[in-house]
Design a protein around this nucleic acid. Structure first.
Lengths: 343, 343
DNA sequence: CTGTTAGCGCATTCAT
DNA sequence: ATGAATGCGCTAACAG
C-alpha cells in the first residue's frame, strides 16, 4: 500500500529531483520545457497522486480563481424556486460550465461582498440586491461586474426595455376609458409586506424595473384615456405563494372590482387567475389579466396568460458571455408580446 | 478626495505604526489586545477602506474558506430546474446562509474535484454524480463529505428507505394478480436515452436509488402475485420535459396497455397523467398511476397524484446541519405515503 | 531549457 | 500586550 501523502509542488519537485519551477511549468506552461520532460513529470505526479498545483495558492499568487459569484436579488433559498430566476441561472451555468468556470451562489441579503470577493474573478448580478449596501460595494469594486435587470453606472449590463414592454402588454388589455384597472406591483417599495401604494411624484423612477414597468402601464392608461383609481396600485415584496394569493384576494375584494389586472409578474397573474376561477369570475369576459415574464406555466394553464415573454435563459447566457469575453457594453435584449386567452 | 488605495494587512500596519500581527489580532483575536487599541485600529481601517484580511490569503494560511461545494448529480443547468433538487437546495442554502457559509454549485459532470477542492471546506453531494470519476475522488478526499441519496462508504449521509417506500406506494396501486403493470424507471441505466430494460440478475442493486426502488416495486408485485411482463421496465436518464412525455407515450402505446404505472418520479407520473388525459383514458378507473417525490404540482393537478412524499427541503437542512456540526452519522429520514386520486 | 529567488497576504509561533 | 520571523503553496522574473 502507498502511504497517503499530501503532495505539494515543492515536495514533488524534491522527490523528482527537479526544481519546483519546472514542475510548475509542466502544469502551466508546456512551452517552457521539452515535451518528453513534461510528460515524464506529469506521469510521475499522477502516479504519486499529485493532481496539480493547489488552487488556493495559485489564486493568491495569480489573482484569479476561475470562480464567479452570481449575486442574487434575494436569498438563495427564494431565488432557487423562482422560475424566472431558475431560467436565468440555467443560462448562466450553461455558459460557465462550457468555459470551465465555477459558480458561487451569493445571497442578495448579505451585508458584504467581503466574504467572497477575494475568492472570485468577478460578479454577475441578477436583479438589484435586496441589501442596498451590496450595491454600493459593487459600484466601487475593482473586479469585473455584469449587472442584469438593473444598472449601477458601470458599463456592462443586460436589460430589456421594461417600460415599453409594459406599455405594449397593457395596451392589449385596456379597452375603454371606463375600464377599472388595478396594477399589481412587485417590489415597488422596499416594504416587506403587501400594501397599497400612493403614486408619488418623487418615486425614484430610474432605478428599479418595478418603476419602469409602472411608467409603461401609466403611459398606456393615458393613451387610453383611463384614470387609475387612487387606491389601485398594489405592492408585494416577492412573487411567492406567500404573497401572491393574498394580493389576488385583496384586489378582487376591492370595490368597484377591477376589470383589468396589470401584473408585474406571471406568478402574480397566475394567482389572480386562480382566485378568479375560485370565485367564478370569467376571464377574460369579466376580468382581463396580463402578466410579465413568460414562464412556462402561463402557457399550460386555462386560460393561457397574456404576458411579456423575456427569455431569461438567453439573458443568462448573454450575461455570462459578456463576463467571459470581458466585453463592456450595455446590452438591451428583445422581448416578445405573448398574447394568450386571459386578455 | 481620497486616493483609491488597495490596502493590505501589512500596509495598514505600517500606516498605523503597529505591527501586522496586531492588526491581524484586531480582526481575528480580540482577546489578544486591549479593547481600546482594538477599536482604534478597526476604526482606522474602516476610515481607510480596509475591510479586513484578504480571504484568499487567509484561506491559504488557515486552510478554511467558509465555502462549501454542493456537488450535484447532473449539470447545474439541469438541476436548477428540477423541483426536487430545488427544494433540496432551498434547505441547504437556508442553513448555510444562517451560518454565514457560502455555496459553490458544482456540476456532477465535471471530471475532477480539483478545480474547487482547495477553495472549499468540504462537499455536500446531492445524488450520485453522473461522472463516476467524481465518486472515486469523493471517497478518498481528506475534506468533509456529506452524501445525500447515495453512499460512498463514508460515514456521513442522508437517505430515505427507497425500497420500503416504493413497496408501500406500489401496494396501494396494485389490485389483482391479473394487473398489467409497467415500471417507469429513472436512471436505472447509465444510458443517455429512453429504452426498455431487461431485468438482469446482475443489476447493481446496492448502489443507486433507482435499483432500490425497483426492488421495492418487485417485492410488491410478488406480494400481489403479479408477474411483470418482460418488456415493461423502462428507463429514462432524467425527469425532463425532453424524456418524460415521450416515455409516457411509448408506455401507453405498448400492447397490452398497462393498467398500473409505477413511476420513479412525480414528473414522470405527471407526464403520464397528461398523456392519459390527452387520450381520454380515465384515471384511476382505466389506469392507476403512482409517482415518487411529493412535489407540489402533484397536489395541484387533477386527479391528484398518489406518491411518496420525501421532504427534500428537510433533507437539505439535515445535510447542511450535519456538515456544519461536523457530525458523522448515517441518517435515515422518514417519508410519507401520500394517497391521491390517481390510484 | 532549467534553477534560484522573491514575494502574493496573511496567521502563528516565540520572543520581549 | 506587542513585534519579528517563518512559511502556507505557488508563479513570475531573472539568471544561467
Amino acid at each position: 500500500m502507498t502511504k497517503p501523502k499530501s503532495w505539494t509542488l515543492k515536495s514533488i519537485a524534491a522527490e523528482l529531483g527537479v526544481s519546483n519551477a519546472t514542475v510548475s511549468n509542466a502544469f502551466n506552461r508546456p512551452d517552457q520545457l521539452s515535451k518528453a520532460r513534461r510528460e515524464a513529470i506529469l506521469k510521475a505526479c499522477e502516479q504519486r497522486g499529485y493532481f496539480g498545483p493547489n488552487k488556493a495558492a495559485q489564486s493568491l499568487r495569480k489573482g484569479t480563481s476561475n470562480i464567479v459569484a452570481l449575486v442574487l436579488a434575494d436569498s438563495v433559498e427564494y431565488m432557487v424556486s423562482d422560475p424566472v430566476a431558475s431560467s436565468f441561472m440555467r443560462g448562466v451555468s450553461s455558459v460557465l460550465e462550457a468555459n470551465n468556470i465555477n459558480l458561487l451562489l451569493f445571497s442578495g441579503n448579505n451585508d458584504h461582498l467581503n466574504n467572497v470577493v477575494d475568492f472570485v474573478d468577478g460578479f454577475i448580478c441578477y436583479g438589484r440586491p435586496r441589501n442596498q449596501g451590496l450595491v454600493e460595494q459593487l459600484k466601487t469594486i475593482t473586479k469585473q461586474v455584469v449587472t442584469v435587470d438593473f444598472d449601477i453606472g458601470r458599463n456592462t449590463s443586460v436589460n430589456i426595455d421594461n417600460e415599453q414592454a409594459s406599455y405594449d402588454i397593457a395596451m392589449h388589455a385596456l379597452r375603454s376609458p371606463q375600464d377599472h384597472v388595478a396594477i399589481l406591483g412587485l417590489r415597488l417599495l422596499d416594504e416587506e409586506r403587501l400594501c397599497r401604494v400612493q403614486a408619488q411624484p418623487n418615486f425614484d423612477t430610474s432605478q428599479s424595473i418595478a418603476h419602469q414597468r409602472l411608467r409603461g402601464y401609466q403611459r398606456a392608461l393615458e393613451a387610453q384615456g383611463i384614470t387609475l383609481a387612487d387606491d389601485q396600485i398594489w405592492n408585494v415584496p416577492e412573487s411567492s405563494e406567500r404573497y401572491a394569493p393574498r394580493l389576488a384576494k385583496e384586489v378582487l375584494d376591492s370595490v368597484p372590482r377591477p376589470e383589468v389586472l396589470l401584473c408585474m409578474s406571471d406568478l402574480i397573474a397566475l394567482a389572480a387567475l386562480r382566485e378568479a376561477a375560485a370565485r367564478g369570475i370569467h376571464v377574460p369576459e369579466q376580468l382581463r389579466i396580463v402578466g410579465f415574464d413568460g414562464i412556462d406555466e402561463g402557457q399550460r394553464c386555462v386560460p393561457t396568460l397574456s404576458t411579456i415573454h423575456q427569455n431569461s435563459e438567453e439573458k443568462g447566457r448573454l450575461a455570462a458571455n459578456l463576463f467571459v469575453q470581458k466585453e463592456r457594453q450595455k446590452a438591451l435584449i428583445a422581448y416578445q408580446v405573448q398574447l394568450g386567452e386571459s386578455s
